[in-house]
């Protein structure tokens, strides 16, 4: 069998492989290097990245030694605790908005689910009885404004939009003024998806951020970066560059209802200290949930 065939055959077993490995981990009686290697694979396959994984496993080895852990369950528990230390155990939450209006800026690369996240956030605030206004700041992508318009209808939120191709900063400026005039509680600002290595687009974002602060001192109150759970190591670069352009207050991890674990948020939380605030777990309007670190960490070790 050629290399190609071998890899293909190997992959047939990948999914069940992870499950077996996990079960294997829990049923192990002692932990040698093999144990830690398997653990490394579990973490890498969840997209935590090489560096974070190696550091974590190293810390774990130390902990096992220091605390003289002997039971596999205790070791796994120790690893979970290490992860929780990184993610922060307290439940981060956006609500209720304390300012009126509270301005939330939503950012991300193309296709991560920014507009959908805004729709779901709007629904969430509407359920809480808030008056919500959506700012159609994605003036670039074809039909992005229409997409947000539909969400505005579905959630019975207000909408401020300009023409396709308009200056996004101007749209958002107008939206904030409109929100004040109409007594809205929350302004959700959509932005065009942009790859973080496009310098001009990141400059545009800086301008949007400046203009928001000018329109309403103290705003934006939240700057959320939307990350796609299927994204690998590049998400770390995304977070770093976006954070420089517009200091982030939180992450939204979308598409967690697939088989991806989105472990890169651990690397992001570790290096940038930005908490995950929400997770997207489905297409439904209510499928945006607060991030609960404990549940997430359990999920990492859960084969589904």
């Amino acid at each position: 069998m050629g290399l190609f065939g071998r890899i293909k055959a190997g992959l047939q077993k990948t999914r069940s492989g992870i499950m077996n490995r996990l079960e294997g981990l829990f049923s192990r009686k002692n932990f040698d290097d093999g144990f830690f290697e398997e653990l490394e694979e579990v973490l890498i396959s969840a997209d935590l990245g090489v560096e974070t994984t190696l550091d974590l496993v190293e810390d774990l080895r130390q902990k096992v030694k220091d605390e003289k852990l002997t039971e596999p369950d205790d070791v796994i528990a120790a690893l979970k605790q290490l992860l929780l230390d990184i993610l922060g155990e307290s439940e981060e939450s956006l609500e209720p908005p304390t300012e009126k209006p509270s301005v939330i800026l939503v950012l991300g690369v193309n296709g991560v689910g920014k507009t959908t996240t805004i729709g779901k956030l709007a629904a969430r605030y509407r359920r809480q009885g808030k008056k919500v206004l959506l700012a159609a700041g994605d003036t670039f992508r074809a039909a992005a404004i229409e997409q947000l318009e539909i969400w505005a209808e579905r959630t019975q939120s207000e909408l401020v939009k300009h023409q396709h191709g308009a200056d996004p900063a101007a749209v958002i400026f107008d939206a904030i003024n409109a929100a004040r005039a109409r007594g809205c509680d929350v302004v959700l600002c959509d932005t065009a998806g942009r790859l973080h290595n496009k310098a001009s687009l990141m400059e545009e974002l800086k301008k949007v951020h400046r203009v928001i602060a000018k329109a309403l001192p103290g705003a934006p109150h939240e700057v959320l970066l939307v990350l796609d759970a299927t994204t690998g190591q590049n998400a770390l670069a995304q977070a770093k560059v976006f954070n420089e352009a517009a200091p982030l207050t939180g992450l939204v991890l979308t598409k967690l209802d697939g088989t991806a674990k989105g472990g890169i948020v651990i690397a992001v939380a570790r290096s940038l200290k930005i908490p995950v605030k929400f997770i997207g777990v489905g297409e439904g309007i209510e499928d945006l949930q607060p991030f609960i670190a404990q549940e997430y960490v359990e999920g990492l070790f859960h084969a589904d």
Partner: peptide, 14 residues
């Protein structure tokens, strides 16, 4: 396929 996809790419493709 998004070029930025991580480890999950194999599951999706499969």
């Amino acid at each position: 396929v998004d070029a930025m996809t991580g480890q999950d790419a194999v599951n999706v493709a499969q």
